[in-house]
Simulated scan of single mutants.
Amino acid sequence: MTNDQIICSVCARGGSKGVPGKNLRPLNGRPLLLHTLDQARQTGRFAAIAVSSDDDAILSCAREWGADVVVRRPDEMASDTAAKSPSIRHCVETAEAELGIQFAAMVDLDATSPLREPFDIEAALDMLLSSGCNNVISVTPSRKSPYFNMVELNEDDFGFLSKKLEIPVVRRQDAPKCFDINGSVYAWTREAFFSGPAALSERTRLYIMPEDRSIDIDSETDWLMVEFLMSRKSEIEKKYIQKKIP
């Protein structure tokens, strides 16, 4: 599959309860949305980058940045309770109609996961294209385990371990490996997505990312953590560059 058969979608709503206006809020001197769009462009792997939103300011920002397609999202796909997959499908179908192309593979990037690197996108895409799977989702090792320290409440409000093994686990390190979906990179073949756009299926591969590149901004605390990590990274890069300059 060649790059001219692959599309990248970025779905960015105007509304957000956790961090109001977050997609256009400046992060490290630039609107949050642009960090993801820059990462997509830097891969050089996409025939088109399409941005879907219900917000005029977001669409204008994406257009000024140079998105290949900007898509006005229908109101019914932009509520707090709306599923994301219909928005991705609408975005891809609109882009295909506008460009006169039917793409063979698609990658969706969350604008709220700006700590990913371009090579994360490429690696997830390469996994999709080389493994014969239906889709790839990015994950990070879970800090809690349903086999060790994740509990639920029963009907009498008593706590119990979410998943029990025949031989109880006494150390988290001995529990089966578990992962959190970090919301950073989703990749599908077009056939798999349009036949049933589930994030997890029997033919889903996991692309594992470290915790420090896996924060999905959903609260002010998340924002502050990302802001700190980005500023720290910038300082380290500046020191490295200064050492290289004679």
Rank of each mutant, 00 (worst) to 15 (best):
N3D: 04
D4G: 03
Q5F: 00
Q5N: 12
Q5A: 11
S16Q: 11
K17T: 14
N23W: 00
N23F: 04
P31W: 06
T36C: 12
L37G: 03
L37Y: 09
Q42C: 05
A48D: 02
I49K: 06
I49E: 00
V51L: 09
D54R: 08
D56L: 07
I58L: 13
S60C: 05
S60I: 08
A62M: 13
R63G: 04
R63W: 07
V70M: 10
E76M: 02
E76T: 08
A78M: 03
H90N: 01
V92S: 00
E96V: 13
A97V: 02
Q102C: 05
A104H: 13
M106G: 14
V107T: 12
V107C: 12
L109R: 03
L109N: 12
T112E: 15
P114M: 11
L115K: 02
P118E: 06
E122H: 02
A123N: 08
L125A: 10
S130G: 05
N134M: 10
N134A: 14
V139W: 01
T140C: 14
K144S: 13
P146R: 10
Y147I: 10
Y147Q: 04
M150I: 07
M150D: 15
V151C: 14
E152R: 13
L153T: 14
F160Q: 12
S162N: 14
K164Q: 11
D174I: 04
D174H: 13
A175E: 09
I181L: 12
V185S: 00
V185E: 10
T189K: 14
R190I: 02
A192R: 00
S195Y: 06
S195R: 15
G196H: 10
A199G: 09
A199W: 04
L200Q: 01
E202V: 09
E211K: 05
D212L: 04
R213M: 06
S219L: 03
E220Y: 08
T221Q: 15
D222R: 09
V226A: 09
V226Y: 00
L229Y: 02
S234C: 03
E237R: 15
K238N: 12
Y240T: 07
Y240R: 15
Y240H: 11
K244L: 15
K244W: 06
K244Q: 14
